[in-house]
Design a protein around this nucleic acid. Structure first.
Ligand code: FES
Ligand code: FES
Lengths: 150, 150
DNA sequence: TTTAAATCGGACATTCTTATCTTAATTGAT
DNA sequence: ATCAATTAAGATAAGAATGTCCGATTTAAA
């Protein structure tokens, strides 16, 4: 999953930020409009729209069209959705279980040259991605302990 | 650094494989030709050439042109070069110290929403990348414990 | 019923990564 | 000197990721 500037692809980090902001508003049962989301996470409007649509299709957040519409997340999902769900929805599974050197499939029976070095790191990453909920992130942002833009 | 199919960019994983193979031959003080490298790591010839050139410019491996030419690594470098050096040479520094959500710079004073989750993973990755030498990888491949292609 | 506010969805444009092609430069052997 | 083998380097192409645009659709309210 490693690329030239950070851990996640841009799409994925925009998705994580967008979902976190929707989650933050979800803490108080509010829906938010696309425009507000894009501004709040400092991400291009149209591109943010595309990403939000993916999150909707992946049943992570929901949306309402028309006047008074917007994006929102249910209490249930806010608690249930973990980071892995978002990463999968945007980048797919390969991103967190693929072989470090590009083998078709990571396996201990034909380990690549980096297998034993990378495996523990990937395990730690997986553990974090499945144990961190969107609510965790949303709360931290809501309490001003962490931020969605610089 | 995370992308759609594995931990490193393709360029970077080709570089790691190529360097490891050159390193394996370096264990017995042999130079190898581009063609042999590309075949051995299952990577396109011309693209492999480009990557090898970057490794040469980064003083990780060396090359000789002309008949009987090829790529090789000195005993000193084989022992001294760590994975970080290769990753830096190909993908640059951002790849392992950039902010997970794309902030200009990762900092505890303005942590992004994922900072506290990602930091320990990145630290573990860094630790691995600086403590694993090319010789370590080359040896494991030489002993058939790990592989460079499927 | 009309209108304005939103999201949806597909086509399009741009930029970055990956890959190829071609020509030059270098070197050892004949 | 010439030739063949080999890396170096730059131009170019193909593909994927990122980003934009615009018209269609849905909805609430006037
Ligand atoms: S085989 Fe490459 S990471 Fe496991
Ligand atoms: S600020 Fe984003 S990872 Fe540290």
């Amino acid at each position: 999953m490693i690329n030239k500037s950070g851990i996640f692809s841009k799409s994925c980090s925009h998705a994580l930020k967008a979902a976190t902001f929707v989650g933050k508003k979800g803490l108080e049962n509010k829906a938010v409009k696309l425009k507000e989301i894009a501004e709040e996470i400092n991400s291009p409007l149209a591109f943010t729209a595309k990403i939000l649509q993916k999150l909707v299709k992946a049943n992570i957040i929901e949306s309402n069209r028309g006047a008074k519409g917007g994006f929102f997340i249910t209490k249930v999902n806010l608690k249930k959705v973990v980071l892995k769900d978002i990463v999968f929805a945007i980048d797919g599974e390969g991103s967190y279980s693929g072989c470090a050197l590009g083998f078709e499939k990571c396996s201990a029976s034909k380990p690549c040259a980096l297998h034993f070095q990378i495996l523990p790191i990937r395990e730690k990453l997986k553990e974090t991605l499945v144990s961190t909920t969107l609510k965790d992130l949303a709360r931290a942002v809501d309490e001003n302990n962490t931020f969605l833009k610089e």
